[in-house]
Design a protein around this nucleic acid. Sequence first.
DNA 1: CTGAAAGCGCTTACAG
DNA 2: CTGAAAGCGCTTACAG
Lengths: 345, 345
Amino acid sequence: MDKSVGIAKREEITGKLTIKDVAESLGVSESTVSRAISGKGRIGEATRKKVFDYIEKHNYMPGINSNGLISGRTHNIAWVMPGDCDTVEIPFFQHCMLGLLEVVETFSYHLIVTVSGWSDISHLEHLVNNRKVDGVVLARTNVDDLAIKFLKEKGIPFLTIGSYDDNEVIQIDHDHRSACEELTSMLLLKGYQRVGLIGGSRKLIVNLNRYQGYADALTKVGKVPNSSLIYMDVENYVAAEIAVEELLRKEVECILCMDDAICLYVLNKLHKEMIEVPRHMKVSSFYNSNLLESHIPAVSSIEFDARELGRNAGKILIDYMEGKAVETKNLLGYEIGLKESTKSN
Amino acid sequence: MDKSVGIAKREEITGKLTIKDVAESLGVSESTVSRAISGKGRIGEATRKKVFDYIEKHNYMPGINSNGLISGRTHNIAWVMPGDCDTVEIPFFQHCMLGLLEVVETFSYHLIVTVSGWSDISHLEHLVNNRKVDGVVLARTNVDDLAIKFLKEKGIPFLTIGSYDDNEVIQIDHDHRSACEELTSMLLLKGYQRVGLIGGSRKLIVNLNRYQGYADALTKVGKVPNSSLIYMDVENYVAAEIAVEELLRKEVECILCMDDAICLYVLNKLHKEMIEVPRHMKVSSFYNSNLLESHIPAVSSIEFDARELGRNAGKILIDYMEGKAVETKNLLGYEIGLKESTKSN
DNA sequence: CTGAAAGCGCTTACAG
DNA sequence: CTGAAAGCGCTTACAG
C-alpha cells in the first residue's frame, strides 16, 4: 500500500477578477458591468447578456468587502453561545442554531458563531466593535447578563433566546413557566402529595422560570413551595446524589428535575439505591433533550422544538433589522409528554 | 403584575465615527490617525497618545470592510456541517466546532457556520464565491464529496475533518481504522468467536474506515469477515431491529456497533427481547458520544476527543493559510474503554 | 441605455 | 514625524 504522506504549502493567491477586468475585456464601462450584475438601473438586454456570459465563463464574483464598504452592512449575524455549555444544552443549541441558520441563509445573511462566558464577553465585543455583524442572537440569558448590557449600549440590533426582564430587549423563548406549571399540576392531580424539585443554576433565567412554574402549580392548589424539598444550583453528579438522598429521607413520592442532565443523575442514583421507577418513586424532567431518549422506563417531560425556536428567532431579528415593528416578548408553545416514569401504581 | 407587551422598531442607524471624523476633531491628517491606530510607520508618541485617548473616549472602531478591501482578506473561516446530521453527530460537531473556534479566535479569525447537503452545496458556494471567507473547514467527509471537489477547483484553502483519499487535501481525523482494529482485536482475544457488526451509511468515509479496522482485526487472526454477520447502512431503529433479530438467530456472541446511535437501538432491542447484556450478549460501540453515558451496564467503546480535534484542525488550516508547510494527512489518537458490556461471564 | 466621476473608510508609498 | 494623494473594488447619482 502506498502510504506516502503529503505536504501542502500555499503558493500564489488566486488572481481574482475585478469588475474593471470584466469591463475592459468587454469594452464597456465599469458602471455598465455593475448594473448588469446588480440588475439595478436601466440596462440593454444585449449588454446584460454579454456581461453575464462573460462572468459566467470567467467565474467573476463580486467582492463582498467593496459592497460592504458602500452599504455599511456586513450581512452577517452573530450567534453567541455560552462557552461552558453542558450536556443538555449542546443539542439544544445545535438545533436552535440550525433553525436560525435556515432562515438567516434564506435572507442571504451569514452566521458567525462565537462564545461568551459569564464575565468575559470579549469575543462578542470584538465582533461588534469591528462591525463584523449587523445583528446578534444570544443563545441564552443569564441573570445580570453582561452581553445584553453591552449590546443595548452599542445600539446594535439583537435578540435573546430566553426571557429577560426588560421590555426593550427583543426576546423569544419557550413558555417554560407555563409548561412547568402545567406538568407539575398534572402530577399534583395524580395525587402525589410530596413532590421534590431538583434544579440547576439560578444564574440561568430559564431555571428561574421553571421554578416559577413549579411554584405556580403549588399555589394554585393552595400549597406553598416547601423549601426543604427544593434543591437548586445542582450542577454535578455529587450534588444531585446528595439531593436525592435527602429527598429519599424526606419520603417524597415524586422528584421533578429541571432538565435531563439532572434527571439522568437522579435516575442513576435511584438505580444505585435500588429504588424502582415508577413503582417506588415517580420521576419527571422539565426539559426533553435526547439524553433520556431511550431510557427505560420512558421519562415524563416537556417537549420543546428548538429548531423552530431558532427559525422564529431569525425571522424576528431580520424583520427588526429591516425596520419592521416586532414584538419584544415572544413565547412559543410546548407539549407535555406523560410517560411511564410518573405512572401511578 | 404588569404584563405590558413591548413593540420594538428600529429607528436611526447609529452614526458611526470614521477615521476622517477623528482626524478633523484632532486637527491631524487621516494618515496620522491610521498610523497611530495600526502602529505601523513612524509616529510621535504625543500624537499617538492623543489619538488613542480620543478614540477611547469616543469609541471609534475601524470599519472591517475598508480593511478587507485593502488586504483582500476577510478574516473569516467557514465551518461546514452536514445539514442532516443525526443524534450522535450533534455533540461531536459541537465539540469540534468549539475547539476550532478556540484557536481560530485566538488568531483573530471569525467562524461562519453553514450547512451543506449530499447534493446541495449552494450555501458553501455562496460563501466562497462571494469571498466571505479566507478558508474552509469541512466537518465531515463523504464518498465522492461535492464540497471537496468544489473547493479544490476554487483553490481556496480548506481542510477536512475526516479522512479523504487524496493526498492533496489537507485532512485531520481520529485514527478510526486503528482504533476499531484494536477494539475488535481485544474482543477477539477474549475468545468471542462469532462477532456481528452493525454499521451506518457507507456514504460516510468514517464508516468505511471503521469497517476496515474491524476487517483488519479479523484478518490478523486469520479470519475473513463473514458478510452474513455484517449489516451496513443501518440508519434507523427498524433496520437495527432487523439486524439484531438476524444476528440473534445466527447466534453471535457479541455485537459491534459503529456508533452510539446504532448501539442504543441495539441495546433497546436486546432489552425488548429480554437478552441480558453482558450475560447473554456482549455489546460494544466504536464511538463514544454522550448518548450512552449513563447506560447500565456501561458500554465498551472507543473514546475520542472531538474538541482537541477541532483545535488541531484550526491550527493546521491557519498555518497553511499563512503560508507554512503542513502535512496533508493528520491522525489523532484515541483511547479504548473496555467496560461492563463486554465482560466475559 | 451607457459613461465619467465621486465616494464608501481605510492604508500606504511618496514627499516633505 | 506628518500630510497629500492614490487606490482597494464596487455603486450610484449625474449627465448625456
